[in-house]
């Protein structure tokens, strides 16, 4: 095993081009476990901690450019307003110690369906900025996950950042685990209201081979909200609408039985989380509307 220590992004890209099998390591949450447990012996380990700009973020007009290695703790502390869903998801990642080291780049690189950031990124809408010596490209988050623990990265590419749309409405994230802290998701759900476009987006974790959106559920809810004039009248979403949305989210799942939970539990729990997060975000949206109206 060789240890590569690029001091800059350019050096990292060059090293990855020269050694496409090199395994990037930043927070170490996944890679070191695999090494410690003898599941993986990469030819090259490439430390990205020295590439400073990976740990930085910029808040732009429309979106946040979030460096791949920005620790979850920083997301929780600094980006709660811009990326509320991701900040909530970050808070559920493993332990404080892990949150101090791990960032979304690791979740995306591993592309495990259980990665906590995925549902939030799917719901918020994001693009993954990847780069190689050949050039840079942005992969829409919906196209990023290509299979179980597989992603759209080419062998010579590295994840540089994620461009996440700034929240234009309330967002929520829920995750079921069989412990009250430090737990890998049995399943997870991200939900975002996008009042500007009058749409909603979802993200489901650990209930299909890859993180997915429940598109049929989104479409149903978009239509139902529009039809009922909910965006304007700020009424409570009718229970039957919420229920059907939840059922469609459950139906979007393609889960398995494993040691963490049964498929049918996952399907069930996704439905419950869908309904609850819809309720929470909608309550919040109504509250904001009232405040805005009151102020006006």
């Amino acid at each position: 095993m060789d240890f590569l220590r690029p001091a800059s992004w350019e050096e990292a890209l060059a090293a990855k081009a020269e050694h496409p099998t090199a395994v990037p390591i930043a927070g170490g949450t996944d890679v070191m476990v695999e090494i410690n447990f003898d599941h993986r012996r990469p030819e090259y380990l490439m430390d990205l901690n020295r590439v400073g700009d990976l740990s930085e973020w910029e808040v732009g007009e429309e979106s946040v450019r979030l460096g791949a290695s920005v620790p979850y703790t920083k997301i929780m502390e600094n980006l709660r307003a811009e990326l509320p869903g991701l900040a909530l998801a970050s808070h559920t990642v493993a332990s404080p110690q892990i949150r101090n080291r791990g960032g979304v780049g690791g979740n995306l690189g591993t592309a495990s369906p259980a990665g906590d950031a995925h549902p939030a990124l799917l719901a918020a809408g994001a693009e993954v900025e990847v780069e190689s010596v050949r050039g840079s490209r942005r992969i829409p988050i919906d196209e990023f996950y290509t299979g179980v623990k597989r992603n759209a990265l080419a062998a010579d590419e590295l994840i540089r950042s994620v461009h996440v749309k700034k929240a234009d409405g309330p967002q929520q994230f829920s995750k079921v685990g069989t412990r009250n802290a430090m737990v890998i998701a049995v399943c997870a759900f991200g939900f975002a209201l996008h009042p500007e476009t009058r749409t909603v987006r979802t993200g489901i974790g650990s209930a299909a081979p890859t993180p997915i959106r429940a598109k049929a559920a989104e479409e149903f809810l978009n239509a139902a909200l529009e039809e009922g004039g909910f965006w304007d009248n700020g009424k409570i979403v009718t229970p039957s609408v919420a229920k059907q949305f939840a059922d469609l989210c459950s139906a979007a799942c393609n889960p398995i039985d494993d040691v963490r939970g049964t498929a049918s539990y996952r399907r069930h729990a996704v439905g419950v989380m869908a309904r609850r997060t819809l309720t929470w975000t909608w309550e919040s949206y109504r509250g904001t509307r009232r405040t805005t109206e009151g102020a006006a």
């Binding site: 170490g28 476990v33 410690n36 493993a94 332990s95 110690q97 101090n100 080291r101």
Partner: peptide
């Protein structure tokens, strides 16, 4: 595997699991 915290040290001031730092 970063699940127990017994190896917690401060790395540049931040508590981290030293088993997960190469």
């Amino acid at each position: 595997q970063g699940e127990c915290g017994s190896c917690t040290v401060r790395l540049d001031g931040e508590p981290v699991c030293s088993c997960l730092v190469a």
